[in-house]
Design a protein around this nucleic acid. Structure first.
Lengths: 229, 229
DNA sequence: AATGTCGTGTGACAATTATCATCAGCTAAT
DNA sequence: ATTAGCTGATGATAATTGTCACACGACATT
């Protein structure tokens, strides 16, 4: 699972976000960082687990979810490479408020949280960078949830399809990494209605469906539905 | 509007959150901080405004809202004293993504953002404290929205009433600081249905209503509705 | 005093969404 | 090979929520 050679110098995390970290700090983190591989479906973190590590996604795709009071799953958000997976509560809680599950084969990079905090305490510029990143990510989650909230069923389903097409795969045909049930858990509707809506989109020749394969045929139409439908 | 005497030493902001700030840093912030008073209904910050200051609420109650694509208002959250009002995007965007409006007479304390950032860069412990606070606040917003999302109309209205009773006023009779329309904008339902639901609660002797005065009579029942209704 | 606007309140009806039942296909387990 | 369980799919029906219409009072403006 863990790598033996140190590749932090080439790590995107460093070059993309943490421009203001010293060589020593990088080395200190590097010598104890651990990479983990997960297969699609594997649970990476479980709700209630103590927060010991600072995780980011190096490769793959994950979902953040939680269990509601009446034992239903609710998907909070999806995270892509270089998103911080342990971001929602990492600096404000002792334990995770949500579960992280791989929805594609994924690789995480785990750093010891105390060590990251130690660097943060010593290096304010690093911490400010980090805060900017965390802030962007939580902003995104809040805005996405507000967007979804104001839409009806059809608009919500269209929004999810466009999310995967535009933000995740950057192409109009892709394999849906989640089930209809999971779409429902994300947009707050029932599985049956998600399935029905996809069928209608197909009947109206807006998309083509082959199992989990989605092909967006009439993107303008789908965008219009996402906005006004 | 602005105060002439420096009272930062007694400021809750310092004692509560910024335990790790030096006397010099406090003084430096203090000499240029500005307090503003707002009356109920006043707009404190407007969506799209450039972010120049770091604001926190010293007294009162505010709502955070945004305008959706089809020009409807959507309330994101409410903020209480010592919440950071300019928190959602202050470190991740050039301009506000939302409007802040006083829903009770309020006082803000404004610090120059660049100066706060300067301190943050110099003082990692301070920044880590700050990040913890920002993180807690955004976590709260996300969790509240998820809670509301899984409930039906009745549960949502009950949830809002309990929010004001428990979290804001800490008593079971209070004057609702917002209109029925604003409740609707927060929970994502129509004004008519909010009014109807309040009427039903009244008919069922769960609450008493005198205009904006709310008196929760049967709190257990209301809590049960919030959870399962 | 007349007018307009806004918040509140209620009813009738339409639209949206959930629930329940059923079925087919696939896969894992025995 | 058979069963059990899960996802996907569709229809009928019920529940929930939205829309439209109207009414009333408070309040500000003219």
């Amino acid at each position: 699972m863990s790598t033996f050679e140190c590749t932090c110098e080439r790590c995107h995390l460093k070059t993309l976000f943490f421009r203001h970290i010293t060589k020593n700090e990088i080395r200190s983190i590097c010598t104890q960082k651990v990479e983990h591989n997960y297969e699609k479906g594997d649970v990476i973190l479980r709700e209630g687990d103590p927060i010991k590590n600072f995780l980011y996604l190096k490769e793959g795709l994950v979902k953040l979810s939680r269990t509601t009071g009446d034992d239903k799953e609710q998907i909070i958000s999806f995270a892509k490479p270089f998103d911080f997976v342990s971001l929602l509560s990492v600096f404000s809680s002792e334990s995770y408020h949500y579960t992280v599950t791989a929805i594609e084969d994924s690789t995480t990079c785990e750093l010891d949280l105390e060590q990251v905090k130690e660097i943060a305490r010593e290096n304010g510029v690093f911490t400010l960078d980090l805060m900017t990143r965390v802030s962007e990510a939580t902003d995104r989650i809040i805005l996405d949830n507000l967007e979804i909230k104001q839409k009806h069923l059809h608009g919500r389903v269209a929004y999810v399809l466009l999310f995967f097409a535009n933000k995740v795969y950057e192409r109009d045909d892709f394999e849906l990494p989640i089930s209809r049930k999971e779409i429902a858990e994300y947009i707050g509707m029932t599985t049956e209605n998600v399935i029905r809506t996809l069928s209608e989109f197909k009947k109206d020749k807006i998309i083509r469906i082959f199992g989990k394969e989605i092909d967006i045929v009439d993107k303008e139409r789908l965008e219009s539905i996402s906005l006004h439908g």
